[in-house]
Simulated assay, not measured.
Amino acid sequence: MSSQRGNVARSRPQRHQNSRVFKNDKYDTSAQRKKINAKLHDGVCQRCKEVLEWRVKFSKYKPLSKPKKW
């Protein structure tokens, strides 16, 4: 079992691998999606920037209705 304590070496490769990259604008071609993809995340720390970019990449980002204070 891979979750056993101390068992860090796997005996086989990953079973399922994606052959294509996920495209967040493949089916959603709305103006809001284009606006979200074009947005630059400046003025935040590096960790928050990485989180925001990941959320945009996988269609998890939801714009705020009103701006927040940092």
Score class of each variant (00 low, 15 high):
41 H>A: 01
35 K>P: 00
7 N>D: 12
28 D>E: 11
65 S>L: 13
18 N>W: 00
32 Q>E: 15
60 K>E: 06
23 K>S: 07
68 K>C: 09
15 R>W: 09
70 W>G: 09
10 R>F: 08
38 A>K: 06
62 K>L: 09
51 V>C: 04
20 R>P: 01
62 K>M: 08
20 R>N: 05
66 K>F: 07
58 F>W: 12
26 K>E: 12
67 P>H: 06
51 V>K: 01
44 V>T: 08
64 L>V: 05
70 W>A: 13
64 L>P: 01
23 K>Y: 07
32 Q>Y: 05
35 K>T: 14
23 K>E: 08
57 K>P: 00
4 Q>H: 09
19 S>M: 08
57 K>Q: 03
11 S>R: 14
19 S>K: 04
49 K>F: 00
12 R>Y: 14
62 K>D: 07
18 N>S: 09
35 K>Y: 09
39 K>Q: 08
24 N>R: 07
11 S>G: 15
68 K>L: 13
9 A>L: 13
23 K>G: 02
6 G>R: 09
50 E>D: 13
35 K>G: 00
14 Q>F: 03
16 H>P: 01
34 K>T: 15
26 K>S: 10
51 V>A: 03
11 S>Y: 12
52 L>I: 04
7 N>A: 13
10 R>Y: 05
19 S>T: 10
25 D>L: 08
32 Q>M: 13
46 Q>Y: 07
57 K>Y: 01
46 Q>D: 14
38 A>Q: 06
16 H>S: 12
